[in-house]
């Protein structure tokens, strides 16, 4: 079953490799993956859609949370969330169908980003299934060329982000909630 995982990660070389490595090592195929810096440019937000063996769903989230570069990994399939994807599409449009194409584009809320004698370049955002339909309809007018962004997902529940505080070398640091403690064992 498809699982949508949202990750907040340190924006460092190798961070993506570690996350993707966890998935590829289990022989799973990633359906879509998006990465971009957050407002805090030292961090990145990733959304990964991947078909996971059912009994491994929780395990893979735990494994991701174990990665040093991962601040938080959450399974968005478990709670309420909103998913959007963007598509850029070139449609070949002969004179007789240009108006019809524009009408259809309007129905899907797509914008024309380029227009030429050959046709249009369109931009649309929406849920993945909606964009699938949009692509099908446009294909009925002729050849299309398409680039999709992959899903970006936002959880609609606020999740508390727990971060580890700095560790003074050789000292014991108590976490604020008193339940956990970080101890740096110096030899």
């Amino acid at each position: 079953m498809q699982q949508v995982i949202s990750l907040l990660v340190e924006n460092k070389p190798g961070a993506l490799m570690r996350i993707v490595g966890l998935i590829s090592a289990r022989g799973w195929n990633i359906d879509s993956l998006t990465v971009a810096k957050t407002l805090d440019t030292s961090l990145s937000r990733m959304t990964i859609a991947v078909a996971v063996d059912d009994h491994m769903r929780r395990q893979v989230i735990k494994q991701m949370n174990k990665l040093i570069n991962v601040l938080q990994a959450t399974d968005l399939s478990e709670g309420p969330s909103v998913t959007r994807e963007m598509v850029l599409m070139r449609v070949r449009a002969p004179q007789e169908s240009r108006t019809a194409i524009l009408k259809e584009a309007e129905i899907f809320g797509a914008r024309v980003v380029d227009s030429s004698v050959e046709g249009f370049a369109l931009e649309a955002t929406g849920e993945t299934e909606k964009l699938d339909e949009f692509a099908d309809i446009m294909r009925s007018y002729g050849e299309i060329e398409i680039t999709r962004s992959g899903a970006v997902t936002l959880s609609l529940e606020a999740k508390k982000l727990r971060l580890s505080p700095p560790v003074t070398k050789g000292a014991q640091v108590h976490e604020t909630d008193g339940q956990e403690k970080l101890v740096h064992k110096t030899n």
């Binding site: 040093i68 570069n69 580890s164 505080p165 560790v167 070398k169």
Partner: peptide, 18 residues
Amino acid sequence: PVTSIHLPGYKVYTEGHT
């Protein structure tokens, strides 16, 4: 010399839930 380490994503749970 380095005096402190900050790995915000590295969580170590040692105490156990009472």
